[in-house]
Design a protein around this nucleic acid. Structure first.
Length: 269
DNA sequence: TCTATTTGACCACC
DNA sequence: GGTGGTCAAATAGA
């Protein structure tokens, strides 16, 4: 039976090994430029931050990682509480609050316009804000299993001000908590649901099909908007006219069998 | 008692 | 410094 103390030591050793690997990689990259190396640098910085946070969670020095002696695990037993601030609750919360990172620009995001807030996914509301010049507040939701399954999916819901009664929902990041049998909420025309469409703003994948013409409900339902977005992100396909005409075609949605509305009135390109 | 929501405060980003 | 995203204590509800 491994004691909690032993587990902690093992975790720290793993972190130390990871840290050494990052430093070696950094040495290899040196000051060379190029987009890929720039990206690698950003990823390394993220890894370093994560490791610092992990150390802090283990009550080890985290504010000045460079000063920490990673060449050995000496002092593991000595360093414990108080390293990241007092154990008193207010201090702990103060430390944790410094950790959160905004992900809107770096994560996959897409937007849907629906008559119903409920999308069938497991969300937990964690905040609500009044937005400047907006009539309705914006609600913030995270995955119910954020902590249990380390799922970072979030969404923001705000009622449209155009009187349509629709809710604009911005999804940030896909669910990683799903089992294989459950599809994450990819940015697609929601199959089987006629009351909404999705306008992805960032999908990192190759286009898989050519978009032709969509003018019926059936076509709309059969169409993958994910493919549309990937298509529109092709080099040279950024011309506004081409993209807009196709998106406008898709902007026809069905609130019910007989009631079509043109969402291009409310979607701005 | 447990879980979800509310809400004021904190903090990052522009 | 202002705005908006996130946190977590307080509160509500099942």
């Amino acid at each position: 039976m491994v004691s909690e103390g032993e587990k902690k030591k093992m975790a720290i050793r793993e972190l130390i090994e990871g840290w050494k690997a990052v430093m070696k990689l950094q040495d290899l990259l040196g000051d060379r430029g190029g987009p890929l190396l720039e990206l690698a640098g950003k990823i390394m910085a993220k890894i370093k931050r994560s490791m610092e946070h992990s150390l802090c969670l283990l009550d080890l020095p985290c504010n000045n990682l460079h000063a920490y002696d990673f060449s050995s695990d000496n002092g593991i037993d000595e360093v414990s509480e108080g390293s990241c601030g007092s154990k008193k609750r207010p201090e702990l919360s103060r430390v944790r609050r410094g950790y959160y990172k905004r992900r809107r620009n770096s994560s996959e995001t897409w937007t849907t316009y629906t008559a119903d807030i409920d999308d069938g996914q497991a969300w937990r509301k964690y905040g609500q804000k009044n937005i400047l010049n907006s009539k309705f507040p914006r609600s913030y939701y995270r995955c119910t299993y954020k902590h249990d399954r380390d799922c970072n999916a979030t969404k923001q819901v705000q009622k449209m001000e155009d009187g349509s009664g629709l809710f604009q929902t911005i999804y940030i990041g896909s669910h990683t908590c799903m089992t294989d049998s459950i599809e994450p909420p990819y940015p697609v025309v929601l199959e089987g649901r006629n009351d909404c469409i999705a306008i992805p703003s960032q999908v990192e994948e190759e286009p898989s099909c050519k978009i032709n013409h969509v003018d019926t409900k059936t076509d709309l339902n059969n169409f993958s908007l994910r493919s549309l977005q990937a298509h529109s992100s092709l080099p040279g396909y950024g011309e506004e006219d081409a993209v807009q005409s196709e998106v406008e075609l898709l902007a026809w949605t069905v609130l019910n069998d007989d009631n079509f509305i043109n969402l291009s009135d409310i979607i701005h390109f």
